[in-house]
């Protein structure tokens, strides 16, 4: 258990350092996803399996896809076309791939020896979290819902392209 934690912590720190030192945003994103998955495994080892799943789904899934969409939309740099052949060079993906492989082996070990590791750790079940969320923190969850709504509307409003031409008959030539 302890050695699993240490390996995963090393992977998380290494992936985070790699993520903030890359010059290319997509390469940083690859390392950042590995870092999030490593943190998810740490959460799993700490006895929060529901939160670990949420971390993978929301952080490594949704938020990273949002980043990828924006990087694709911006299409930074006019030299992107020239770099297209270099995109899949092994130098780029070998770092995140090795770190992911470490995490995968670790997860395989955890799943195969489920009876020894998971039952020992004192878990907080999703049921307790849900009960606490919807009784004690009901005001908080409502405020979070309002904040997400404000985030959606704000994102739409900010990223809207301002129309220069009001009407086709009023077009200024």
């Amino acid at each position: 258990m302890m050695i699993l934690f240490l390996i995963t912590a090393f992977v998380a720190i290494a992936a985070s350092i790699l993520a903030i030192t890359r010059t290319n945003a997509v390469h940083a994103l690859l390392n950042l996803i590995v870092s999030f998955i490593a943190i998810a495994i740490i959460l799993f080892l700490l006895g929060a399996p529901f939160i670990a799943a949420l971390e993978v789904v929301v952080y490594a899934g949704a938020i990273m896809v949002l980043f990828i969409f924006v990087i694709m939309m911006l299409n930074v740099g006019a030299e992107t076309e020239e770099k297209k052949s270099k995109w899949l060079s092994p130098k780029i993906w070998i770092g995140p791939a090795i770190l992911s492989l470490v995490l995968f082996l670790e997860l395989t070990y955890v799943v195969l020896s489920e009876s020894e590791i998971l039952l020992q750790s004192s878990q907080i079940t999703p049921k307790e979290v849900g009960i606490s969320l919807f009784t004690q923190y009901i005001l908080g969850i409502e405020l979070v819902a309002i904040m997400l709504m404000a985030g959606i509307i704000g994102a739409y409003h900010i990223s809207r392209v301002k129309r220069k031409v009001k009407h086709r008959f009023l077009k200024e030539e």
């Binding site: 929301v58 949002l66 980043f67 908080g140 904040m147 997400l148 959606i152 704000g154 994102a155 900010i158």
Partner: peptide, 24 residues
């Protein structure tokens, strides 16, 4: 205590809203 996980869910929702506005 389950309070820590509740707070994580709040942080998660906050991060999602923050990222959407920031990327816009």
């Amino acid at each position: 205590q389950p309070d820590g996980q509740v707070m994580f869910i709040f942080i998660l929702a906050m991060a999602a809203a923050e990222v959407s506005v920031g990327l816009a």
